[in-house]
Design a protein around this nucleic acid. Structure first.
Lengths: 200, 200
DNA sequence: TTCGTTATCGTACATAATGTACGTTATATT
DNA sequence: AATATAACGTACATTATGTACGATAACGAA
């Protein structure tokens, strides 16, 4: 493994940092390649020596962040410990992280390419959750359905929460989403389900 | 209310139909305005007499479809009847509808502008669900949180299901999502939650 | 320190889609 | 039949993109 040329390392970091700052400042969609290279004090042509387009650059910039977050949350633990000492710590960590970078994530998820990133994030989350589910035998539903449900619901709620300028504190939303996911709408709303309906 | 000029009516319908066909044939992103007008046998300049861009055209093309679908599902009923004769009919109808137009919706939701449309759809669904929730007193959580959770989870699952080429029959996924939403992951996975954890 | 390598610079060019303009023609409304 | 205007046909300016290439500077290896 040959070490990367210092110039390459520096250039990529400069581009990534410039991108994130500019997304916060002026959003993702209107951002031109030249805006990024200008902010990074580089020539536009240099960009294409490292990345195919804005999207590839953003994905590279986000990947580190996500890996770090995943370690913090140990997200799979949410599923893993469902039957034991349950907790909503993973949710809380994630929502707090989203809150700290709310402008960045809001602009990304609400951008044109937002769907691309949302998909990546959901796949990433679902993968982590799937690991935890593998340790639970006799699931009533296919594991990938459950994993993608949990991941999709969480991501959808983060998206909604950020889009609407975080109308409730992170603690409350995290708790709510956790509860809804684990126990369902019926239990959360204090609605009794008669046994008759349990199979319909 | 003056009736619309026949030419206008015809032109708009032609553009909408051409767009939907082309999205199925070649996806949304690579689609140029000129491709649409060519298919509709119209001049490119004519497009701009009616729509600002592709997005506006697609939104207008989808709105009718959604209104029709909403009437079929009476989606709000899902929340409305949670405590009574529960059913997953609304979910089933929606998933079947998605299945019938799977290429169209997959290409839309997976496109660059997919996030924009996903947001619109989620807001639309959440609005319907909110209507049903208003009739339920003493919610443990804010109604908009619950509504957006239900809508977000369903839309996320439709998106996932379409992205992965519908790996399970519509009936099974609809049933699964319905069950997960109503009773939660714990109940679905046959995991017992001890009373200690019910408040954490 | 020297030397070969190569990332970046500086600049230029081709391409492609967009948005708009405007006189002309055809069609709808009354 | 007369008037209004939608759509045509064509043209033009703009803007971002992607690429090319010789020159320069920074880097890594010896």
């Amino acid at each position: 493994m040959v070490r990367l040329d210092r110039r390459v390392e520096r250039t990529r970091k400069l581009l990534q940092e410039a991108l994130l700052v500019l997304i916060i400042e002026q959003g993702y969609d209107t951002l031109r390649i030249e805006d990024i290279t200008e902010r990074a004090n580089l020539r536009r042509a240099t960009f294409y020596m490292h990345y195919k387009d804005k999207e590839e650059l953003l994905l590279s910039a986000l990947s580190e962040t996500f890996n770090r977050l995943a370690q913090e949350t140990e997200h799979f633990a949410a599923a893993d410990r469902l039957g034991g000492k349950t907790h909503y710590g993973a949710y809380l960590t994630t929502f707090k992280h989203a809150e700290q970078n709310h402008t960045l994530y809001r602009n990304i998820l609400n951008s044109q390419s937002g769907a691309v990133f949302a998909r990546r994030i959901r796949e990433y989350l679902a993968g982590l959750i799937l690991q935890g589910l593998h340790q639970i035998p006799d699931l009533a539903l296919p594991a990938d359905v459950v994993a993608n449900y949990i991941a999709g619901a969480e991501l959808a709620m983060i998206t909604w929460w950020l889009e609407n300028d975080m109308p409730y504190p992170a603690e409350q939303v995290a708790q709510g989403v956790y509860q809804l996911t684990l126990r369902g709408v019926a239990d959360t709303l204090n609605i009794t389900i008669s046994p008759d309906n349990r199979s319909d």
